[in-house]
Amino acid sequence: MARRPRAVAVFSGGLDSVCMCAHLSGFHELHGITFSYGQRAAQEVRAARRLARRAGLVEHRTVDISFMRGLYAGTNVLTDSRSRLPGRFDYSIVVPVRNAVFLSIASAWAFTIGARTVAYGAHTGDRPYPDCRPAFSRALEAALNAGESDGIRSKKRLPIRIWSPASEGLSKAEMVRRGHAAPALALGRRRAPPARVGVRQHARLKERVDPPPLAALGEALWLFHESGPLA
């Protein structure tokens, strides 16, 4: 029997990566990787461990790269505990090329286990972060494949592609909707009650999944516009 295609996903345990993984695990053998990079939100790593199975990962690894905290010093507030978190988007929450670091390590794993897809949860709403834009992931994908070009040519390695919801023009809402529909999460459709922590997490998930009435109205209008009779 043919194997499902393998994929490596950068998995933070947050809403975006949980939904992305739940969606992708429907048609991939999904291997998740979580980075402990000295971030303030250490609970992120604990959440990732707890949610890995529910998100459909067949394997989950946590990688300690907390030395990055020392290198990043005071460039950003996510790894520097002395400064305060801003109330809304500010460049101080951008960790320098964070996704380049994550994706490079994830890709090294992908080349090793023969995974052709390396996924991360950037969506169209992440535009303020340059390393969440499709132009960046395309360039990094080309660079990494160039770094294994001889291995790829001699068929010792499989070329990778870096995939993100943003690369398909998918928004956070669209990704959450897909994650919600995915068999891995199957909210409210499970026979066995999920673990206590899982319930809390999913209660929170569910709140954000049910689309607000305004968005539903917008969608209906769009459909009406798109499918109106021609004649």
């Binding site: 029997m1 499902r4 969606h23 992708l24 048609f27 052709r116 996924a119």
Partner: peptide
């Protein structure tokens, strides 16, 4: 098995067409 959501004969054939969701490994 490789991730397609469905497969059908394309028109009158003999080609067949598979559709797959965003993120599927089309290769």
């Amino acid at each position: 098995r490789a991730g397609a959501a469905g497969v059908a004969i394309s028109g009158a054939g003999p080609s067949i067409v598979a559709v797959a969701p965003a993120g599927a490994d089309i290769g």
